[in-house]
Design a protein around this nucleic acid. Structure first.
Length: 271
DNA sequence: AAAAGCCCCTGGATGC
DNA sequence: TGCATCCAGGGGCTTT
């Protein structure tokens, strides 16, 4: 999916334009990951007040309740006054007084779920276990290092789990670990304070730059205005197995960790 | 309690 | 060109 930068870029591309809109109609396609959780008719007439992000979830605040929206692995949003005719991967659409918001999601790992509030059971289930937001002041070296110290899984998998820090997906996990010069297989609890500080900085750096570039690393990503990001122009290791490390020239390695591909430079990233 | 595996689903790339 | 196989950005749930 869309990792944190892509979700944030999506949010920025339509949040202001949809704020204040009222829901006129809803069209559902094939089932997504979870049911909406309320009759579509109960949403008609409600106002969309703001769009926030928590981890990789988008939160559409309504005048009553909120919609939790997740792009899964292959989802993207479009928001415009007019949109092309619906295709067979368009599985959710809001018609509003200010335009159409449409979710296209070929693999249907995405979801749109209604919750009465952030304290509702469904919202707590989805958001309750999420870690700290990496681009806020709450993400600090001391608590990050403390969190790592009690985890025995590999650092790559701890980053991916999202219960310590959110938003770092499979691509940016490899990229951040490269920038911090840490081997992805290193057990989290063995990471020293200086290395935790490097990783902390690397995570912020790689995510911040990706947001600035408009969600740079997804090959088929586009924001809700239909503008695509640049395709992997600055991946240091991700997707580059066998190619020379951009720092030292050694062939980039690809291994499997928890059914996911991990890329790293065996020379730059020593334990 | 934490960690590891298992799925959900479709399409594109690759190889024979 | 056709078909089988493999792989993909996530993450909740179940099993160890």
């Amino acid at each position: 999916m869309p990792e944190l930068p892509e979700v944030e870029v999506t949010r920025l591309s339509f949040a202001d334009r949809i704020a204040g809109a009222r829901i006129l109609g809803i069209t559902m396609g094939k089932p997504l990951r979870w049911p909406l959780g309320c009759p579509t008719s109960s949403l008609l007439g409600r106002e969309i007040r703001s769009v926030r992000r928590r981890g990789k979830y988008l939160l559409l605040d309504l005048d009553q309740g909120l919609l939790l929206l997740h792009l899964g692995m292959s989802g993207s949003l479009a928001f415009a006054a007019q949109l092309p005719p619906r295709g067979h991967h368009d599985h959710f659409e809001l018609q509003t007084t200010q335009g159409f918001l449409r979710l296209n999601d070929p693999r249907r790992f995405g979801a749109v779920v209604f919750a009465d509030s952030e304290d509702a059971a469904v919202a707590r289930k989805l958001l309750g276990g999420l870690g700290v937001e990496p681009l806020t002041d709450d993400f600090d070296v001391a608590s990050f290092h403390a969190g790592l110290k009690v985890r025995k899984a590999s650092i790559k998998q701890v980053l991916l789990a999202g219960d310590l820090v959110v938003g770092v997906g499979n691509i940016y996990a490899s990229e951040a670990l490269f920038l911090a010069r840490i081997r992805p297989t290193l057990r989290a609890h063995r990471i020293t304070r200086p290395r935790a500080a490097r990783l902390h900085a690397a995570i912020r750096d790689v995510l911040t730059r990706a947001v600035e570039k408009g969600g740079s690393t997804l090959r088929d990503f586009s924001n809700a205005k239909g503008e695509s990001g640049y395709f992997q122009i600055d991946a240091m290791v991700y997707g580059r197995a066998g190619q020379p490390c951009r720092a030292c020239g050694t062939a980039v390695k690809c291994i499997q960790q928890g059914q996911r591909a991990t890329y790293f430079c065996p020379v730059c990233q020593k334990n």
